Simulated scan of single mutants.
Amino acid sequence: MAIDRLEIDMGTLLDNIDERQVEFSGEADGDEYEFAVQYDVLEALSGDAPDGDAIDMFNRFSDTIVDAALSALARNADAQPIVVSESDLE
């Protein structure tokens, strides 16, 4: 059975500028996972590259990012962190 719900722990959002990703923890099906959303995903969603506003972009598109994170989780639940890339966008 596929996991269809992910709860983001908003207190864990971290803009990792060096790695060009926003990192966060989330709970799905009672288990905790670590995720990293690549800046490319934020750029694909917004049309602009993050420039000091990656967390704001993340928040604006959080519903779509949750869906993409669930796709990434289904693809590779054992990764640490689970990387959410453009290919996870529907």
Rank of each mutant, 00 (worst) to 15 (best):
M1C: 00
M1P: 00
A2K: 00
A2H: 00
A2R: 02
A2S: 03
I3V: 00
D4S: 01
D4P: 00
R5H: 03
R5N: 03
L6E: 01
L6R: 01
E7I: 02
E7T: 03
E7S: 00
I8H: 00
D9K: 02
D9I: 00
D9V: 00
M10P: 02
G11Y: 02
T12L: 01
L13S: 10
L14D: 09
D15Q: 07
D15F: 06
D15T: 05
N16V: 12
I17S: 15
D18C: 05
D18I: 08
E19P: 04
E19A: 15
E19V: 13
R20I: 04
Q21C: 15
Q21P: 05
Q21V: 14
V22H: 13
V22R: 15
F24C: 13
S25T: 04
S25W: 05
S25F: 14
E27L: 12
A28C: 06
A28W: 01
D29S: 13
D29V: 04
D29T: 02
G30R: 06
D31Q: 08
E32Y: 05
E32T: 10
E32C: 07
Y33S: 03
E34A: 14
E34C: 12
E34V: 07
E34R: 15
E34I: 03
A36F: 09
V37S: 03
Y39H: 07
V41Y: 07
L42R: 01
L42M: 02
L42W: 04
L42H: 03
L42C: 01
L42P: 05
E43I: 00
E43H: 01
A44W: 00
A44N: 11
L45G: 04
S46T: 08
S46P: 02
S46H: 04
S46I: 02
G47T: 03
D48N: 12
A49R: 14
P50V: 05
P50H: 07
D51Y: 09
D51H: 12
D51K: 11
G52Q: 04
G52E: 08
D53R: 06
D53G: 06
A54L: 05
A54H: 11
D56P: 02
D56G: 11
N59F: 12
N59M: 15
R60K: 13
R60N: 15
R60E: 15
F61R: 10
S62W: 07
S62G: 04
T64D: 13
T64E: 14
T64Q: 12
T64Y: 10
I65N: 08
I65D: 12
V66T: 12
V66E: 14
D67T: 13
D67P: 05
A68L: 11
L70I: 01
S71Y: 05
S71F: 09
A72L: 08
L73P: 07
A74Q: 13
A74I: 07
R75G: 06
R75T: 08
N76M: 07
N76I: 04
A79P: 13
A79I: 09
A79M: 10
Q80S: 12
Q80T: 12
P81I: 06
V83D: 03
V84Y: 06
V84K: 11
V84P: 11
S85E: 15
E86S: 06
E86N: 06
D88V: 09
D88Q: 09
L89D: 08
L89C: 09
L89S: 08
